[in-house]
Amino acid sequence: MFRLLEDDRGRMESTVTIEIDGYPVIARIGETVASALLREGASWSRTTPVSGARRAPYCMMGVCFDCLMLVEGEGLVRACQTLVRAGLKVQRQTGPRKVGPSC
């Protein structure tokens, strides 16, 4: 849905690679997981625990909670408040989150 501005293309030294649902996603250092997600083809972040409807980041400032994603080691957190870091593993959340030994 979004693209980086021309002036910022090719600045590879300031990027890291994160994983969303197992796929590598290149992100700019200092941006949030939600912001990186919104440049992906499928930019939805979760399906709701109530009806299973898809949601995507909506407010980007931490007040709508529609960008909740499962971040390894942290649980279900607001992707718009989570900074990217190299190797960060993120999953779209489908329905209510699981709890289990690996979560």
């Binding site: 849905m1 979004f2 980086l4 919104l38 440049r39 995507a56 407010c59 980007m60 529609d66």
Partner: peptide
């Protein structure tokens, strides 16, 4: 208004400031 693809203007402005994203 809950569909992916509907966002607030404020959200888009946040993306403009960091990392400098604009609608494709």
């Amino acid at each position: 208004w809950t569909l992916p693809g509907v966002m607030t203007v404020g959200a888009a402005q946040i993306l403009l400031k960091n990392p400098g994203s604009v609608p494709s």
